[in-house]
């Protein structure tokens, strides 16, 4: 049957070719980058055979270790706080008859998505540099706070989606069966919301981990994260060490995205 010619209503001439070209475009640069990470030679231009040399060197580099640890601390704290705040906000803004201020809340929560990062970055630079002078404190708190703010809308997205797809009569059923609001939340809402919360946390974590621009402007001296460290390195001469760091980073992102995908599929 399959070999019988028929009129395929879905076909559009040239579309398949362009699509395959697009996928090639998407993966060719990444493939190049990864390939050179395993290059034994000193330069990113000459292929000197397969080696893990640059991974070893990167992992021994104190500055890299330091930046990686800082990235992890910031991403974990920011994603945790953002997820908690986003969960509460999502509960307050879904499955409710519209009330005064609801639209305002949506706009407020999604605001970090609407403004170009560079604008937020310099605005934070202005405010935080003032506060740093006033208080004398110049620790990681500024970075964590800034990251938390732009992570909230990302954490909010899947949690809200999950809540909205949840049958609101489930909580009514719990209340009908003598569960106080708190117990209804603990026993019914929270367990059902869990996949959304996990997805939200992971999104926030990846977003925080990836951030370059805001971090670059908010950080004090010696507060490089992995991305800002790489940005500094790229400006100087390029060694395969940056490729190795980028490849490791990439592997982590792919892992997180895969987990995210699997969680979301289970939900459906």
């Amino acid at each position: 049957m399959a070999s019988r010619p028929h009129f395929d209503i879905r076909r559009q001439p040239g579309f398949v070719a362009i699509a395959l070209f697009t996928f090639a475009v998407l993966y060719l640069p990444i493939a190049t980058l990864v390939a050179y990470a395993f290059n034994a030679s000193d330069s990113v231009t000459v292929w000197g055979g397969l080696s893990l040399r640059w991974f070893v060197e990167a992992s021994r580099n104190a500055a890299v270790q330091d930046a990686a640890w800082r990235s992890f601390v910031i991403a974990t704290s920011a994603a945790t706080v953002a997820t908690i705040a986003a969960t509460m906000a999502a509960i307050a803004t879904t499955r409710t008859p519209p009330y005064r201020g609801l639209g305002f809340k949506y706009a407020f929560i999604n605001q970090p998505l609407m403004v170009p990062e560079i604008v937020t970055a310099v605005a934070l630079l202005i405010v935080f540099s003032r506060i740093k002078v006033w208080t004398g404190y110049s620790g990681l708190g500024y970075l964590i706070l800034a990251h938390t703010a732009f992570c909230i809308p990302f954490a909010y997205l899947p949690i809200r989606a999950r809540l909205e797809s949840m049958d609101s009569s489930l909580e009514r059923a719990a209340a009908d069966l003598y569960a106080t609001p708190w117990r209804a939340f603990r026993r019914v809402t929270l367990p059902l919301l869990r996949p959304g919360i996990i997805a939200g946390f992971m999104l926030a974590f990846v977003i925080s981990l990836d951030d370059v621009v805001i971090t670059e402007f908010v950080k004090s001296g010696g507060q490089d994260t992995l991305p800002t460290y790489m940005l500094g390195q790229i400006r100087r001469e390029v060694t395969p060490e940056v490729n190795a760091i980028a490849t490791a980073f990439l592997a982590l992102s792919v892992l997180l995205v895969t987990v995210f995908f699997v969680i979301n599929r289970k939900k459906a």
Binding site: A82, A85, M88, A89, A92, K105, I109, V127, I152
Partner: peptide, 20 residues
């Protein structure tokens, strides 16, 4: 319930825009 999210975003995203 929405206060923490709103406050954080105000302090570290919207407020600074006004200062700017």
């Amino acid at each position: 319930l929405s206060a923490p999210a709103l406050v954080i975003i105000f302090v570290a995203a919207i407020g600074p825009l006004f200062v700017m």
